[in-house]
Amino acid sequence: KSCSILVTDANFECNEENIMLQAMDNSHIALVSVEIGAPGFTSYRCDRTMPLGVDLTSLTKVLRCAKDENICTLKAADEADVLNLVYDAKSAFFSPFFFAFMWHGRDASSPFPPFFLLCSALLPLFIHLNISLSSQTPITSSWPETKYDTRVTLPSAEFTRIVRDLSQLGEHVRIEVSKEVVRISKLKAKSSAEDEDNDSIPTGVVIEMNQHVSLTFSLKYLVNFSKSGSLSGEVQLLMSNDVPLLVAYDFTQGYIRCYLAPKIGD
C-alpha cells in the first residue's frame, strides 16, 4: 500500500531468499525499494526466480479486503499470468466460503464489478482473488552504494506527524542537520529566518554526522514516504549535500527504502 502511492505498477522479483521490488515514480523524482526476506513469511517457497509484474493500484484495492487477522497467501504458478491471493480467517467461525474471480486489474479506472462489494461484505471468510500479471521492464541497475554524511534516527510516528503538519503550511521543506540539531523548516516563497516555522524535534532522536547538511525537498513526497511509518517504530533519514535523501524503514525481515531527489536553487 505504501508503494502504490508512489508507483502504479512494478515487478516483484522473487527468489529463494526474498521478494524485492524497486521502482521509480513517473516523474523520476522518487524511487522506492522494498525487500521482504523469506523468514518474514509463515511459509515461503520459490522454485524458480521470476518477476511478478503487478499493477499496485489494483493490488492495493484487493488488499483492502483483508483484515488484520487474515492470513494472506500469494501464489503464482510457473508460466502463469495471474497472481493468486487467498485470504483465510484465522478463526473459522463461519463455515468455509470460497470466492474466486479473474480481475484484469490493469485498467485501474474501471469500476469494480458489483459482486466485489459482495466479496467485501462476506469477510472474514475465505476469499480467493486473482490479479493479472503484466510484463514490465524492471529497473536492472540497483541504486549505487552511497556513503552519507549524516544519519538521523527518530520515531517514525514523529516523522509522520512533522511532515504531515508542515505539508499543511507549504510545499517544500528544508532539512538541516548539524552536530546537535535537526531542523525541519517550512519554506516560504521568500524565506527568511523569521519566516520559518521550526518544528521541535522530540526525544529519541539520534544524530550521526560527518558534516553539516542542508537540503530542500518536496513535502508531498515525504508525506507519501511517511505512510510506511506503521511498518517500523523508527525511521532513518540519510543525507549528504547534493545527493538524494534516503528515508529508510527497517523491519525484522526486510525494509522499505525511499529515495527522493532534492530541490535546488536556480
Binding site: M24, S27, H28, I29, A30, L31, S141, P144, H172, L187, T216, S218, V243, P244, Y259, A261, P262, K263, I264, G265, D266
Partner: peptide, 14 residues
C-alpha cells in the same frame, strides 16, 4: 526559485 532535480540525473553521475 527552487528547481526539482530528477533522480536520473544522479544515476548518470554513476
Amino acid at each position: 526559485q527552487l528547481k526539482q532535480k530528477s533522480l536520473t540525473s544522479f544515476f548518470s553521475k554513476g
